[in-house]
Nucleic acid binder design. Structure first.
Lengths: 148, 148
DNA sequence: TTTCAACTCATACTTTAGGATGATTTTGGT
DNA sequence: ACCAAAATCATCCTAAAGTATGAGTTGAAA
């Protein structure tokens, strides 16, 4: 870590020396500020991107590790899993009805909202449960104890 | 996207105006190059980090998450119900894959037949099980012990 | 008060599912 | 060998489902 800081400083110093040297040799003095300013801006934008990119963490890849438990005789929603998968109350409502085999339209009617709303909810559910289809969502939901 | 680019440009423009303004008001001209150079360097390092972080993805970070799932009970096909509902062997194959959340196309691929064939099978299944949708069919099939 | 997530709904579009119908080919049993 | 059921596939069409995007509302937390 210290090495990097020192290296950084040294590089900057050399750079300034280089610029100063160039100033007296190659460039028209009257325009130097604009030119140097621009160069420095570009240079340090790149430096920033380069330096910053090392400390930026990428997308988190969540690996779900399943732990088998015995399903209880009577059903109780697994609140933990609801939280784990960040499923909202309304999404859960939709999930329950979906698991009963209802179509989106039927779910919409039961919940007194529009078909579009249900589509939105179910799309988000599929994302959160990491599935593509409602049949898979229902499967997953049952396994996770989110629905009876 | 365009908004961001425009915003970026506007901010840079204002910045340059600000620096020029400051140049004639507050700072000693003789030292201006070093001061401005340093300021610009710092500023654009930050800009680089900030701007770059939005478009540069870091190494993926793997997060392991444990979730509790219901252990599947051991399963045996209820042959009686298969006969009762007059479900053929092939239809049963389709039903099983359907219950695993596969799409018709995926079922077709697994069974090495065409999509149309699967559609025919599933249509007949829905008739025989007296349901309208595949989600209902899966529900019913599980209840009847036709699939795990 | 600002901010933010959840909820709602819309439009426009693509993809699957499902229904109706008819045709050909296997295949198991008499 | 023959028949009936099962299995295969096609075409045409409609209905649901699903994706993507934007946007207005609201309630609760900072």
């Amino acid at each position: 870590m210290y090495k990097k800081i020192i290296l950084y400083g040294v590089v900057l110093g050399l750079l300034i020396i280089g610029l100063k040297f160039a100033e007296y040799r190659f460039l028209i003095r009257s325009n130097s500020f604009e030119i140097y300013g621009g160069l420095i801006a570009i240079l340090f934008t790149v430096v920033g991107i380069w330096g910053g990119s090392k400390y930026i963490k990428g997308k988190e890849v969540t690996v779900i590790k399943e732990v088998m438990v015995n399903a209880p005789a009577e059903f109780a929603v697994n609140e933990n899993n609801l939280k784990h998968f960040n499923i909202s109350k309304r999404e859960h409502d939709v999930l329950i009805l979906m698991a009963q085999g209802l179509s989106n339209q039927e779910v919409a009617d039961k919940l007194f909202v529009s078909l579009n709303t249900i589509k939105t909810h179910s799309s988000k559910l599929f994302e959160k449960l990491n599935v593509q289809r409602r049949t898979q969502a229902v499967q997953e939901a049952k396994k996770l104890g989110l629905v009876p």
